[in-house]
């Protein structure tokens, strides 16, 4: 079973998304929550880096945190899956362990 990584800070403020991307293995899952959801948006300076991550990792975003901040499904990069809290719970259960990148 692969590992689940969560990130909760904007890549424009902190290095945690970058840190997570560089220390997560192929086939692992990355879930963007809280302020990190902006890392999923199209047209940002990290979009290219995210596209590279999507190619070999499962990248997901917590939909409620996206909506809370005024963004919709259409604003995010192709290949990023939107999940709700129930989906978050499933992901934790389905992966071998979880690391929160703080």
């Amino acid at each position: 079973m692969a590992m689940l990584h969560t990130v909760n800070k904007s890549p424009f403020e902190r290095n945690s998304l970058n840190s997570c991307l560089s220390k997560s293995k192929e086939g692992s899952t990355i879930l963007l929550i809280e302020d990190a959801v902006v890392g999923a948006l199209k047209g940002t300076k990290v979009a290219e880096q995210m596209a590279a991550a999507i190619a070999n990792k499962n990248v997901c975003v917590l939909g409620s945190d996206l909506n809370t901040r005024g963004f919709a499904e259409t604003d995010i990069l192709d290949g990023i899956k939107i999940v709700d809290y129930a989906g978050f719970v499933d992901m934790v259960a389905e992966h071998s362990n979880v690391q929160s990148w703080l």
Binding site: A2, M3, K23, S96, N97, V98, Q99, W101, L102
Partner: peptide, 18 residues
């Protein structure tokens, strides 16, 4: 190395970061 660290993390049961 960063890659070795990724492998080590992957083998854990509990990871507590701060």
């Amino acid at each position: 190395s960063r890659a070795e660290l990724a492998d080590l993390m992957d083998q854990q049961d509990v990871v507590i970061s701060s």
